[in-house]
Simulated assay, not measured.
Amino acid sequence: MFYQPENGHGLPHNPFNAIVTPRPIGWISTRGALGDNLAPYSFFNAVAYEPPQVMFASTSAKPDRDDTKDSMAQIRETGCFAVNIVEFAARDAMNKSSGAWPAGQDEFALAGINKAECDTIDCPRVADAPATLECKMTQIVQLPGATNFVVFGTVTGVHLRDDCLTDGLFDVTKFRPLARLGYRDYTSVTDTFSLTRPDE
Rank of each mutant, 00 (worst) to 15 (best):
S60F: 14
S60E: 11
S60C: 10
A61P: 08
K62C: 03
K62H: 15
P63D: 07
P63G: 11
D64P: 09
D64R: 04
R65L: 10
R65I: 12
D66Y: 15
D66L: 03
D66Q: 11
D67Q: 08
T68F: 10
K69P: 05
D70F: 08
D70E: 14
S71P: 09
S71A: 11
S71M: 01
S71Q: 06
S71N: 01
M72H: 02
M72V: 07
M72C: 01
M72K: 03
A73L: 13
A73G: 01
A73K: 11
A73H: 04
A73W: 05
Q74Y: 13
R76I: 03
T78P: 00
G79S: 05
G79K: 08
G79C: 07
G79H: 09
G79Q: 07
F81I: 08
F81Q: 02
A82P: 00
A82G: 03
A82W: 02
A82V: 14
N84R: 05
N84Y: 02
N84A: 08
N84I: 00
N84C: 08
I85M: 12
I85R: 11
V86T: 13
V86F: 12
V86L: 08
E87K: 14
E87T: 03
E87H: 12
F88N: 02
A89E: 14
A89V: 08
A89C: 04
A89L: 08
R91W: 12
R91E: 14
R91A: 09
R91V: 11
D92E: 15
D92C: 03
